[in-house]
């Protein structure tokens, strides 16, 4: 028995969810009285490779080769299958990230293992293995039992906090000589550089139709800049082209779960709330006192976002200046 954690490599770094997943996996391994093995692909600096051990990995396996630069499902699934068979892995953990969401079910299919996506915490029970997840877009909790010997899960965003749980360990190289040739041919790549990734941000400042036009989103950018957050928007806003589609938070956009979700001029359609309801704290400013966003929010102001925002920005600047004096 052992526990395998697939840690995403995002441009040479472990993203926040990968670090959280390692700490989560370590806690599960302690419950199961077994070892955590972290598998990572592609190039990472020596310094970065010290992190998995600190966050809780007992062993770190690295498959560093240019062919892993493109996420080819067959290649990656074969690598995971090889590690599972060599190390006697019984529990496979992935992030609920684009790569994790793809590889977890593919690995489950190859291993004839039961799969549950986006679990919200440690298992409620280990025998039978029972995990909790949200269904109906966050409206109901379901406890799901996996009946197979091998188990595959993805961890919901921000369901676990990263913790320092161990010491750096020496990474080991994985052989990948027998793996299949990739069949995914990359033609072009476009990166959104220089911004805090929406799914990584602790603070998200978000705007809806109540922001009235694209120009007014400058105010949200300014507040986000001051608080160290990222900007998000609702579907109508990205459909109108006021903001780029990758900023759309909601059921059909990005599912996010920051510490603070601060909503300006957002009424709170059920599809939008489904994408942000995992946030620790929701604050909202909206003109309509009956807007559904106030049912989901912890703190609220009934008022015009465009009048409230400049006052909040001024106040934050004032308080920051006072702290720095």
């Amino acid at each position: 028995m052992s526990l395998l954690i697939f840690a995403d490599n995002h441009n040479g770094h472990f993203p926040k969810h990968a670090r959280e997943l390692i700490s989560y996996g370590r806690r599960m391994a302690e419950d199961l009285n077994t070892q955590t093995i972290v598998l990572v692909t592609g190039a990472l600096s020596d310094e970065e490779l010290l992190l998995p051990g600190k966050y809780g990995a007992h062993r770190v396996l690295v498959a560093d080769d240019p062919r892993f630069e493109v996420l080819d499902h067959k290649l990656y699934t074969a690598l995971i299958e090889q590690v599972v068979s060599e190390k006697g892995v019984t529990h496979l953990l992935f992030s609920y990230s684009p790569a994790g969401k793809a590889l977890a079910p593919l690995a489950a299919a190859r291993l004839q293992a039961g799969y549950v996506s986006a679990v919200t915490g440690l298992p409620e029970n280990y025998d039978p293995f029972t995990v909790r997840k949200m269904i109906f877009s966050g409206k109901v909790f379901a406890s799901v039992e996996i009946s197979t010997e091998k188990k595959v899960i993805t961890l919901a965003p921000n369901a676990w906090k990263e913790e320092i749980l161990g010491e750096a360990v020496e990474p080991e190289k994985v052989s990948f000589a027998g793996l299949p040739q990739p069949v995914t041919d990359r033609l072009s790549l476009e990166r959104h550089e220089g911004r805090i990734m929406l799914t990584d941000a602790d603070i998200v400042i978000s705007g809806g139709r109540g922001m009235q036009n694209a120009e007014n989103f400058r105010l949200l950018e300014e507040l986000a800049g001051l608080l160290g957050g990222a900007v998000a928007c609702t579907r109508p806003v990205s459909d109108e082209g006021w903001r780029p589609p990758e900023e759309h938070a909601g059921q059909t956009g990005k599912i996010i779960a920051p510490d603070l979700y601060f909503a300006f001029g957002i009424s709170g359609a059920i599809q939008h709330l489904a994408g942000v309801s995992g946030s620790k704290v929701i604050a909202a400013v909206n003109k309509d006192p009956d807007a559904p966003i106030f049912e989901a929010a912890d703190y609220g102001i009934v008022g015009d976002a465009l009048e409230v925002l400049p006052r909040l920005i001024e106040e934050v600047k004032k308080r920051k200046a006072a702290r720095n004096r």
Partner: peptide
């Protein structure tokens, strides 16, 4: 099937939203 939902549960009711007056948004 390889999995089975053994229990459904509604999330606990959320405490009501604390409102801040619009003339003192700070």
């Amino acid at each position: 099937p390889l999995t089975r939902t053994v229990r459904f549960e509604m999330p606990p009711p959320k405490p009501p939203c604390k409102m801040v007056p619009a003339d003192e948004p700070e």
